[in-house]
Amino acid sequence: MTDRDQPTPRICPACDGFASAAITLGGRDHRGHLRTITAHCATCQGTGALPARAASLTGGRA
């Protein structure tokens, strides 16, 4: 049995870890580049992971 040094990351269920996306606005600027905006996941605020629960941070059962 292997021991883990770090706990497994809690991937955000809303975005599955893909917290940011570039979305094209459908046109190009005067230099010919696509106009894009960046949209972030509202659940995890763009981090892709959720913070660990307080119970798991204490390291044991109550």
Rank of each mutant, 00 (worst) to 15 (best):
R28S: 13
R4V: 15
A14L: 06
A21E: 15
G59D: 00
L34I: 11
A55Y: 04
A62D: 08
T36C: 05
C41I: 11
I23W: 04
A39F: 00
T8E: 14
S20F: 07
A49V: 05
R61D: 15
T24I: 05
L57P: 08
A62G: 07
A39E: 13
G27H: 15
A52W: 01
S20N: 14
P7D: 04
G46Y: 03
Q6A: 12
T58C: 05
A55E: 14
D5Y: 03
A55G: 10
D16R: 10
G46Q: 04
A42E: 11
A19V: 02
I37F: 01
H33A: 13
C41L: 12
R35L: 12
L50V: 02
R35W: 03
F18H: 14
D16Y: 09
R28M: 09
A39S: 11
T58S: 14
H40R: 12
G46E: 03
G46K: 07
R31I: 00
G32E: 09
P13Q: 00
G48Q: 00
S56Y: 07
F18G: 02
R4F: 01
G59T: 01
H40A: 08
R10F: 03
A52F: 05
H30Q: 14
L34N: 10
R31N: 15
A42L: 12
H30K: 11
F18A: 02
H33D: 06
L57W: 03
T38D: 07
R28L: 12
A52R: 12
G32W: 06
R4K: 13
A14Q: 15
G60C: 10
H40I: 03
I23K: 10
R61G: 13
T47C: 00
D29S: 14
R31Y: 00
S56R: 12
T47W: 00
P7A: 04
A62Y: 06
H40S: 13
A39G: 06
P13S: 01
G26E: 10
C44T: 01
L25E: 14
R4H: 06
R10S: 05
H40Q: 07
